[in-house]
Simulated scan of single mutants.
Amino acid sequence: MGIARSTIGRGLKDLEASGFSQGKVRRAGGGRRSLTRTAATLLDDLRRIIEPSTLGDPMRPLLWVSKSHAKLAVALCAMGHQVAESSIPKLLEQLHYRRQVNRKTKEGSHHPDRDAQFELINQQAMAFQAAGQPVISVDTKKRELIGDYKNAGSDYRPEACPDKVNVHDFVDKELGKAIPYGVYDIGANAG
């Protein structure tokens, strides 16, 4: 490298004598001022932008927003703030917003008609089987694109010889989509 050991030793002694605590690079108060200190109205403006698109239970402290970081940054810039898209997550965190996925909870964990529905299906199935009629169970999956598209799975292939697939997942208008499903005959135990 061309650096003498004595030079490294002197540098280490200088660092120890500098008064910096371990792991810190600057003295307290050094560095760029935070966006909220340089623009006093930034958080209030951000709150006004996200309020119409805020999701979550207002009685709980956890909220989330449905606008992208890029859209929020553009809206703040239009209001005269100098803010980058990469700063938006930190600002949202200061407002107590978090990334969330939706959750199926509107009807509650137990719908009053759920058991009655399955009881009726079970009674009908038993009655048809007793009469010698077939009873089938149909299971469907989500729609799938037909063609050479990337999927999340993997399989063993010769080294450096992956399956070639389309770059984009646009629907092939000729092939369309498939809805995979299975049919199972309960009485015959066959699918």
Rank of each mutant, 00 (worst) to 15 (best):
L92G: 04
L72G: 03
N122F: 11
V65A: 13
A40E: 07
A75N: 09
K71Q: 09
R99W: 07
A40L: 04
E93Y: 00
P134M: 04
G29P: 11
Q117V: 12
K104G: 05
K90I: 06
F118Y: 15
R37E: 04
A40T: 13
D113F: 14
S109T: 00
L95D: 07
Q123P: 09
S21F: 06
K67S: 09
K67L: 00
A125I: 09
P58T: 01
Q100T: 08
L42R: 14
L46Y: 05
T38Q: 03
L92F: 02
E119L: 15
S109H: 00
A131T: 13
V83N: 10
H96Q: 03
R37P: 02
S109K: 03
Q82R: 15
I121N: 12
D57Q: 06
P112K: 11
H110D: 07
A116W: 05
E107V: 02
A78E: 15
T41P: 02
H110P: 05
R26G: 13
F118W: 13
T36K: 13
G19K: 15
A131C: 13
P112I: 12
P89Q: 03
K104T: 07
A75E: 08
G132Q: 06
P52E: 05
Y97G: 06
R99Q: 09
R114S: 00
M79D: 07
Q94E: 09
A70K: 15
P89Y: 00
E51V: 09
A78Y: 14
K104S: 02
L95I: 08
G132E: 06
L35I: 02
L35S: 03
V65M: 13
H111P: 03
R103S: 01
K24F: 07
K71T: 08
I49Y: 12
G29W: 01
L91A: 10
I121D: 10
S87A: 05
R26W: 03
M59Y: 09
F118K: 14
A84Y: 15
N122K: 15
S18P: 08
K90H: 03
N122Y: 14
T38G: 04
S18K: 14
D115N: 09
K90V: 02
C77W: 14
H96F: 03
E107P: 01
E107A: 07
Q82G: 13
A39S: 06
I88W: 10
A130S: 13
R60V: 02
R37C: 08
S53N: 01
R26S: 12
L55H: 13
Q82K: 14
L46K: 12
T36Q: 10
P89L: 07
P134S: 06
K106R: 10
D44V: 01
I121S: 15
L46V: 02
V101Y: 01
D57C: 06
L55Q: 15
T105F: 06
L43T: 09
R114I: 10
R60L: 08
R27D: 01
G80Y: 09
K24M: 05
L72M: 11
M126F: 13
K104W: 00
V65W: 09
Q94A: 03
K71E: 02
T41G: 00
S18L: 04
M59I: 06
A131G: 15
G19V: 02
K106N: 02
E119K: 14
V25K: 08
T41E: 02
L72H: 06
Q82V: 07
L76G: 00
A116C: 10
Q94N: 08
L92R: 10
D44F: 05
P52D: 06
G23W: 05
A127Q: 15
S53I: 04
F20R: 14
V25P: 00
A131P: 15
P52G: 11
